[in-house]
Design a protein around this nucleic acid. Structure first.
Length: 590
RNA sequence: GGGGUCGUAGUUAAGUUGGUUAUAACGCCGGCCUGUCACGCCGGAGGGCGUGGGUUCAAGUCCCAUCGGCCCCGCCA
């Protein structure tokens, strides 16, 4: 029996051994990343979470060690002891952090063997179903380990910041009450109360408001949230929020505390200094200029509104769209980014996804345009458009005419598509922007009623209160989103702390008093017992980590993620349960 | 719910207008090799093309269905 683990404790992580350790005896443990067997001397790259170091087995070191080394295969788990030495001149490996040195092994124990892994850890484009099935192996890859390491640093920096600033971390329940508004709930059947269900929280929203009523004053929590909706590249059904709530604050107080958080987090995790305060943009301006409420402001390509120029146009399509209350908008691509005719045509398909029935384009020449729609436009219209969009020779214009939503969706996304395709921004740019003055509610055609844009506990702006019953969609909310590089990384609001206003909002949302009582009675009650003015915000930890690591998928910043069908290929969840389990819960599969 | 795309040795891919025994690289196994680091050299094994139907003399190639991965629309207060 060897002394490894019991007497010979690990002295270093592999990549932490350096030139100053030469002549020292070290004990290392890790995985055999690669073996190079020269018949005589054998080299093994020993890997752990820190990185790699080359270890050497010389035949002279002793026959038994050398024989044991012959058995080493990929991913065998090794414990070894040896002396650090500088590599012979000319044998250094500059690609390796530890490339100047190596460890000459005197003792070796194979702590565990390994089957040949199903994929190579050097390979970068392994199909994702294989990676997810063997996630514990996928997670050995340094790139993913780095992502999770940064995620850990981000969480730590966040906790430090809040602790330093007088916030208290409080846990809130996972087994809680289903809420009618918002996303679809994950339900958990109650065994004790037959036919009753808990819901997993979409967010700890109501509980953190209650904590303000309790007087905690400053709350935070890094917490899982659950929404049973379809997945995207940046969306999982269970995700992590940095959840915050503060009492006796206004929007500007909260915003500046959160800017401090961002500054600290980026300094500690990425050693980057942010310029604060961040710029702010109203929701209306964001939509008008960028077509989206999560605008990527790293580049221009802003939308220009041409509706005023074209109501009498000879171009029937524009004229009719405007007459029907629609808008005509355009974006301008600089001449340095000219596209081929084929590429221009392909963009039609791109905007069709967002409901655009067409995409008109124009190439600006010295005196005219090259464009399918040029012949329909008057010289005056062309002149006014050229002036409004400040065109110069070689620029390309893209027009969409439709109802505002379609125009904004298609041009807003076309703008992102072109910027990415044509590299109009630098990969490491960081452009934060607060979006403010959201509408409190909007009319839902599917539900035939007004629905909250944020959530029903968001405070209306006091000066808009009078409009609440007459023109609900004109009421602005005291809500704010933080957008980074076109990604909504956080959103929050000042909440309603008065019962009468909360009731009024519920009523406009079509919630009867009885419904409001049965769903949110506990909140309404709490508002009657000295609820302080309060507000908060929640950040998406996963999305923030994605941006900080440059990950293209949320799965690359989550240790054990779900597939698009919300399945876990590793554990095979979700799965069937036994009839006994169902009976215990009084459940029947229909 | 809908649109798109992919599925061929362990992995990554190639596979002509359907046509002999389905290719390659890496990996794996065996042998040789004392300074490699994607070690090298020699030899070898390994799949019947996601699954199920169909068309055909003949299907990895065509058709239908189905399962799964990814991207998107809807959805995500």
């Amino acid at each position: 029996m060897s002394n490894f683990l019991t007497i010979d404790k690990r002295t270093h992580y592999c990549a932490d051994v350096d030139i100053s350790d030469v002549e020292k005896e070290v004990t290392l443990m890790g995985w055999a990343h690669r073996r190079r067997d020269h018949g005589g001397v054998i080299f093994v790259d020993l890997r752990d979470r820190s990185g790699m170091i080359q270890v050497v087995f010389n035949p002279e070191a002793g026959q038994s060690v050398h024989e044991e080394a012959h058995k080493i295969r990929s991913e065998f788990v090794l414990a070894l002891k040896g002396k650090v030495r500088k590599r012979p001149t000319g044998m250094e490996n500059p690609a390796l952090k530890t490339g100047e040195i190596e460890v000459v092994v005197s003792e070796l124990e194979i702590l565990n063997e390994s089957k040949t892994p199903p994929f190579s850890f050097d390979e970068t484009d392994i199909s994702e179903n294989i990676r997810l099935k063997y996630r514990y192996l996928d997670l050995r890859r340094p790139a993913i380990q780095q992502n999770l390491l940064l995620r850990s640093k981000l969480a730590a920096a966040t906790r430090n910041y809040f602790e330093e600033n007088g916030f208290i971390e409080v846990e809130t329940p996972f087994l809680t009450k289903s809420t009618p508004e918002g996303a679809r709930d994950y339900l958990v059947p109650s065994r004790i109360s037959k036919g009753m269900f808990y819901a997993l929280p979409q967010s700890p929203q109501l509980f953190k408001q209650l904590l303000m009523v309790s007087g905690f004053d400053r709350y935070y929590q890094i917490v899982k949230c659950f929404r049973d909706e379809d997945l995207r590249a940046d969306r999982q059904p269970e995700f992590t929020q940095i959840d915050v709530e503060m009492s006796f604050v206004t929007e500007s107080d909260l915003i500046s505390v959160m800017e401090g958080l961002m500054a600290q987090v980026f300094r500690k995790c990425l050693n980057r200094e942010l310029t604060i305060p961040f710029p702010q943009l109203s929701y209306a301006d964001a939509i008008n200029r960028y077509g989206k409420d999560n605008p990527d402001v790293r580049f221009g390509l802003e939308l220009a509104d041409l509706t005023d120029i074209l109501p009498q146009s000879n171009f029937k399509l524009f004229r009719e769209v405007i007459a029907a209350g629609g808008v005509v908008k355009a974006i301008k691509l600089d001449k340095s980014s000219a596209l081929s005719r084929k590429e221009l045509d392909e963009l039609k398909d791109f905007v069709a996804v967002y409901g655009a029935k067409g995409l008109a384009w124009a190439r600006v020449n010295v005196t005219d345009w090259t464009s399918p729609i040029y012949k329909f436009l008057s010289a005056d219209e062309v002149k006014k458009i050229n002036e409004k969009m400040n065109t110069s020779e070689g620029d390309t214009l893209f027009f969409v005419a439709d109802v505002p939503r379609v125009v904004h969706d298609s041009l807003g996304n076309l703008r992102l598509h072109l910027a990415k395709k044509l590299n109009l921004y630098k990969a490491d740019d960081l452009s934060f922007v607060w979006i403010t003055d959201f509408p409190l509610m909007e009319y839902s055609e599917t539900e035939k009623r007004y629905v909250s844009m944020h959530h029903p506990f968001t405070s209306p702006r006091l000066e808009d209160l009078a409009l609440l019953s007459s023109q609900p969609d004109k009421v602005r909310a005291r809500a704010y989103d933080l957008v980074l590089n076109g990604s909504e990384i956080g959103g929050g609001s000042i909440r309603i702390h008065r019962k009468d206003i909360q009731n009024q909002v519920f009523s406009v949302l079509g919630l009867s008093d009885e419904e409001a009582r049965s769903k949110f009675g506990f909140l309404l009650d709490a508002l009657e017992y000295g609820a302080p003015p309060h507000g908060g915000i929640a950040f998406g930890l996963d999305r923030l980590t994605m941006i900080m690591t440059g990950a293209e998928s949320i799965r690359d910043v989550i240790a054990f993620p779900k597939t698009q069908k919300a399945a876990c290929l590793l554990s095979d969840a979700p799965s069937k349960v036994s009839i006994e389990q169902l009976m215990e819960l009084s459940l029947k599969i229909v």
